[in-house]
Amino acid sequence: MENPYLPYPVRIEEIITETEDKNLKTFKFVFQNPEDEEKFAYKAGQFGELSVTGKGEIPIGIASSPTEKGFVKFTVNKVGLVSSFLHTMKTGDIMGIRGPLGNWYPWETMEGKNVLIIGGGFAFTTLRSSIIYMLDPANRSKFKDIHVVYGARSPGMLLYKDELAEWEKRDDIHMHITVDATDDPSWKYNTGFVPTITEQKAPPSDGETYAIICGPPIMIKFTQPVLDNLGYDHDHIIMSLENRMKCGIGMCGRCNIGMEFVCKDGPVFTLAQLNATPKEY
């Protein structure tokens, strides 16, 4: 019998400090046993449990894309016991990963459709995975127009800055990067909150456009009416939820919203699904 609680041993290959407040670091992990990488085959939108031996586990969205081979990446905000300890770890240290866990963005449903990605703050990790996945030469033709609205408090708080700059240069993805405010004279992108930039830049729905939103609750709250005005049906608005988790496999009982477990039945839900369930997230 497979033990779903047993993490794959991994080595920290690289640590990148992403943001100017140093609270967000990206960890690149390599599997100690190469065959574990195949068992960890994942889709953009799924998460893993990072197992910091002696401290515990944390559920974190997978930031690398299934099209990137040889490693997996997770961007972790320094918040509690496990994530704070993880931030003190060094390259070469051994820990574990369980997964992949949960469902993923509905890639098959979105084939042949326009995709609008809306992200705010550090909730851009599985969205990075999704963008890398869609822009892969083997996949780009499967999707029509791709728009990305991504905002952070300031330029220094944006994740994956080098990749954002590269995507800006491409003509097969429409980037709308924004910051809440900045006094940096060299800032050449948008200034304003995500809902406002979405209103100004996002394409109206043609009935065939899917919007994926990840961000802080306040951003989601004010973006939803914008999407309503742009004509997005609630079953075309896709959200990824977070809740406190332990097991990650639908057994320990704490992350449910109504009858659904965020860890196993989610974390990806349509707004239409969420409308029919108690909002305990």
């Binding site: 031996t53 586990e57 332990k246 320990c252 009982g253 704490r254």
Partner: peptide, 30 residues
């Protein structure tokens, strides 16, 4: 149930313990 790591010097166990939806910590986010 809850899952916790418990260390004694350099040795440790990953335990699971009964937990309860009655407790605020059960669902408290980081």
């Amino acid at each position: 149930f809850d899952i916790q790591d418990e260390n004694h010097g350099n040795a440790g166990v990953r335990m699971r313990n009964w937990d309860s939806c009655m407790y605020p910590l059960f669902t408290l986010h980081g």
